[in-house]
Design a protein around this nucleic acid. Sequence first.
DNA 1: TCTATTAATTAGAATGATTATCACCTAAAA
DNA 2: TTTTAGGTGATAATCATTCTAATTAATAGA
Lengths: 150, 150
Amino acid sequence: MEQRIEKIKKQLHSQSYKLTPQREATVRVLLEHEEDHLSAEDVYLLVKEKAPEIGLATVYRTLELLSELKIVDKINFGDGVSRYDLRKEGAEHFHHHLVCVECGAVEEIEEDLLIDVEKQVESDWGFQVKDHRLTFHGICKKCQVVTVKS
Amino acid sequence: MEQRIEKIKKQLHSQSYKLTPQREATVRVLLEHEEDHLSAEDVYLLVKEKAPEIGLATVYRTLELLSELKIVDKINFGDGVSRYDLRKEGAEHFHHHLVCVECGAVEEIEEDLLIDVEKQVESDWGFQVKDHRLTFHGICKKCQVVTVKS
DNA sequence: TCTATTAATTAGAATGATTATCACCTAAAA
DNA sequence: TTTTAGGTGATAATCATTCTAATTAATAGA
Ligand SMILES: [Zn+2]
Ligand SMILES: [Zn+2]
Ligand SMILES: [Zn+2]
Ligand SMILES: [Zn+2]
């Protein structure tokens, strides 16, 4: 935890941004909820528990900043809210998601499944890939069992 | 054009929905702008040229309906607007997108690049894939040339 | 230390996209 | 004809996000 905060602090400093208490509180919330996919509002409410004086706008600005620095990724699952997802330790590609259309569960895939596909896109379309967003919609393991049973 | 409208009409009827004049006008706009990625507002303005009495709410309702029937796909490129994308003739998978981070151009890929990846997800994660969203962010051919030149 | 400058923050207003509501209007069924 | 179930258009309401003005904190130079 502390070392990851330290690392983020350095990333901010390298672009001459500061890790203010509000920003640190926000980052801590993100670290403590790495598996969840929190909306700005979610983050705001959680940060508020520790730092009640923080404003919603600050959370938005912090998330935007972290997003620019590629520390978090902004994703969108189709409900009208942006969600913010911390990049995994050491990962330089954005992980993929499996969204269950039955129960809404979101599973993460950290393996990069797109290496070959990206090569193909670069060679066949001449498009220089920098990042990707891949989400599968379908039925999770759990819901498949339920369906079979009923 | 006419045959595709006819087909969509049948799809609506099969769920006991009607192809009202407003819905038909909306579908025509989508067909005439297949390559673009129109927002609801865009569609509204275009439809209004032919059917000036149409209301914005009706456009939203129509797009939502077409979305449920998998005739269009609702996508989100990160600006705060949903965009609506007609499925290609006969395609039963949603096509992919290449978004240029330099110029904002959006290119489409109709080939399904994910067949192998989906197989892997089904076998390794036990997740039954129904649909996917894949977007690459990067630098388009055109912008690469500019970068080299300057 | 004092002061000027700049960066960050807050609360709240404003904006903009989307959704809900409601009165009215079909078209077909009974 | 009366009924019924969708549709529609205008407008209000909602909700996420961004902007603004005023305030505070941090920084650097005198
Ligand atoms: Zn499920
Ligand atoms: Zn995730
Ligand atoms: Zn470009
Ligand atoms: Zn498209």
